[in-house]
Design a protein around this nucleic acid. Structure first.
Lengths: 334, 334
DNA sequence: CTGTTAGCGCCTTCAT
DNA sequence: ATGAAGGCGCTAACAG
């Protein structure tokens, strides 16, 4: 043994006195192997500290243990949480997530899909249904499993896992109106990047319309959501002077900012102004009054998605949709 | 052209009327190529929509465009931010990050190092200096570049990028004592998992010792840091009755929780109680009074690390250490 | 500046 | 239940 150089299948085979093929079978747990043979092989494997070369395996089998994960952003805490769920679903398997970030740019997404496909991954996971035509074609043409996460309001390529954002918006409207608020305003962020926020807005308006109401004011900031911009946006909309009893925010980041403005400006919540967010972030529940919000179960979405995708290497005839639902969190701010 | 099947180098070569090798050279931008030849090759590449098979490339070159990234957690926002920095450093290159999460478990880290090395990555990035012996041996034996991030207080295997947590702790002590506080308490979380928090604690104690002071109280919660546990911990330490003028928290999560307790319990900040955190999270700056804290530049750490690691495929003779420093943020809570 | 020749380490297929 | 042969798609020498 010249040691030092990394051991290959051949080394293990020699040491265990079997063919490479048998070693390969043991590793992949495929085909029947005599218990005694398996024992010898395993012994040889850890005697040598053998670790299979994934590149060679992928090349030979034209498929890899990689799961490509494409996220719009890492700044928004919900995506790391989605990633956590994906990780949890991958735990105990040999799959490794390879990740990319689009910054909400569909061209970048297409680019990422292309480079991820170059690894012949077992699955590609992305968010939403918006893709460039080329991206969609590449995904459809490749035979990898495709998960489109967060949203379920359209027909997916292969599998969608998420919740109805329109439904969540309606639920927010229902919650607020049932609590007796009728002068309701909306404070949100950029819809171009965040289509799901827009869907919730539409649901909110529909829900209000159902009971003969409409938004009394709305304010949208440019750029992504953040605590700071939520704080500023609420200050701005209140400064406009419209009479407002409750504010529905595009998400918890914005809502927490709004709440902090109320604290700083001594606006009684919810008596003078009720606040409601979306997502159910931890920070919202740590506020002096826990935030009324809607729990979108990001972790479950990610976990369910990988588990479902990896169950079978092939797509079904019909795309599947898994609704992970949402839960109203009453809180104390609305 | 039988279309449908994914094109390979051979297809491109045939179409461009050159050898496979030439195509390979064009793709990797290696060796001199006649402008005319390069044009033809590129034309053929996008005529066919050719995407190189990464597995084949890795196998042949025994090195891949993968950067293995091992994070202790995704729940703590600082690690997604570190990942953002890593991403930023990778932007515009063909490298792809493959990520793993240890949940602060060194055995899991070792396991991840092993499976990531199976991909023959260009570099492996992990956090801190604590690894199992086996893990350290694997990293040292492999010739991949190794980045150990966040901390710089020990000798790295290859490259360390981060800040001195002991120094940051001392800086917190200095800040608080200079502001005239002398009855200082500490509220923190689990040190076993978070060694850097422990290092800051030690620095804090040293810094106080330098001016003849010592902590008047301390409280540590089990488990990871969170806003909720910070809130509860501050409530607990105040209930104990010791006279306290200022509290140094193990990080901003805990400190924000503490601040929220003060808001809820109507404790005037900083007049009755001063608060200081660590990290410089956005949420701390959105509070009614911006949190006094220490900015640890996670994004820069990640970005600098990959940029430095990928500059050269080989390790230097001596390990390198890059200090990204920290910045006191005065805020208004201390 | 370009082509030829050998693998890289594993998996698949077909035998036995 | 195991082995032998061939090839996956690319890159690394070495020629020329």
């Amino acid at each position: 043994m010249t040691a030092l150089e990394t051991p290959t299948l051949a080394h293990v085979a020699r040491l265990a006195n079997v063919s490479e093929n048998t070693v390969s079978r043991v590793i992949r747990d495929k085909g029947a192997i005599a218990p005694e043979t398996r024992r010898r092989v395993i012994e040889a494997i850890d005697a040598l500290g053998y670790v299979p070369n994934r590149a060679a395996g992928s090349l030979a089998s034209s498929s890899s243990m990689i799961v490509g994960v494409i996220l719009p952003s890492l700044s928004n805490i919900v995506f790391p949480e989605l990633l956590r769920g994906i990780h949890a679903g991958l735990a105990g398997t040999s799959y490794q997530p390879m990740i990319g970030v689009t910054d909400y740019d569909l061209e970048k997404e297409q680019q990422l899909i292309s480079s991820l496909l170059a690894w012949q991954p077992a699955a590609i996971i992305t968010t939403g249904f918006d893709h460039t035509d080329a991206a969609r074609r590449m995904l459809e043409a490749s035979k990898v499993r495709v998960g489109e996460l967060m949203d379920i309001d359209r027909r997916p390529i292969d599998l969608a896992v998420g919740l109805s954002h329109r439904g969540a918006g309606r639920a927010m409207a229902r919650h607020l109106t049932r609590r007796g608020y009728s002068k309701i305003a909306y404070v949100g962020h950029d819809w171009d990047a965040d289509r799901r926020a827009h869907a919730r807005y539409r649901g909110l308006c529909e829900g209000l319309g159902d009971v003969g109401l409409a938004l009394v004011a709305e304010h949208r900031v440019d750029g992504p959501s953040s605590t700071l911009s939520g704080r500023q946006a609420l200050a701005a909309i209140l400064a406009d002077g419209a009479e407002i009893e409750a504010v529905a925010f595009s998400n918890d980041d914005m809502a927490v900012g709004g709440y902090l403005h109320c604290l700083a400006a001594a606006v009684p919540v919810p008596d003078r102004l009720a606040l409601m967010g979306f997502n159910g972030l931890e920070i919202g529940q740590a506020l002096p009054k826990p935030l009324a919000t809607v729990l979108s179960n990001r972790f479950a979405i990610g976990k369910t998605a990988v588990e479902t995708l990896l169950k079978s290497p092939d797509r079904a005839f019909e795309p599947a949709i898994i609704d992970t639902g949402f839960t109203i969190i009453d809180g104390a701010t609305a």
